[in-house]
Amino acid sequence: MTRLRANDLTLAYERRTVAEGLSVAVPDRSFTVVVGPNACGKSTLLRALARTLKPRSGTVLLDGNDIHTLPTRAVARTLGLLPQSPIAPDGITVADLVARGRYPHQRLLRQWSGEDERVVTEAMAATGVTDLAGAYVDELSGGQRQRVWIAMALAQETPLLLLDEPTTFLDIAHQIDVLDLCARLHQEEGRTLVAVLHDLNHAARYATHLIAMRDGEVVAEGDPSTVVTAELVEEVFGLPCRVIPDPETDTPMVIPAVRRSATV
């Protein structure tokens, strides 16, 4: 049983068709990671799953219903999205930003319940930003800011959470920070996560389900230890490489081959 799936999608921007006949199922309670070369349509797929992009044809099903026929506020209580570059309003504090994640649970006359308060406090604790509550978001470091945005998405309290390149623009330590946080959310809270990542080794280490895309098509999917092979990396990214076990986790690790032209 999968709560979120895409059937036979045609995805397109104004003139450019990104994908045709694309079908994907997100296994429940998985940490699904989508990888692929630039412009392969992975972010576009994520946007379609989050209903921010309407497919030309095909349907995205959430709990068996076409996501575009469901009330958007109800969807927002089930499915969260952290976009690639969200905008922090000028002069907003961390606590205020995280609190905005409660929007789909609020009404004109139910603007801030005890439940809202509790969830926001928990979301800030889970992401380690409690001490920053009063700080201005535009003064934080990139890593802190990303954790604040994740806290906002957590405050939305959705069983499904989509993350579009959550580690881009972060240094290596902060990338691991964010991925550890995601893994914890997945394991401890049983949330289903779908993330687009650039780093194959990160994907192989953290994902429980890997989807490799190229030119708008799914080339392979499944457990990273079976999916990530030298042949697949060559096929998807055009990169000759070796795949060895990660000495830390035993998951597949991609070592790019030395290309003759690049050596001195």
């Binding site: 946007r47 989050a50 209903r51 921010t52 958007t72 506020r73 109800a74 969807v75 927002a76 209580r77 499915l79 969260g80 999205l81 952290l82 976009p83 570059s85 969200p86 905008i87 922090a88 309003p89 905005r100 994640g101 929007y103 789909p104 939305q156």
Partner: peptide
């Protein structure tokens, strides 16, 4: 916070 974030929040 941007169209996508707003959309995702319902």
């Amino acid at each position: 916070m941007g169209d996508e974030t707003a959309y995702a929040l319902g």
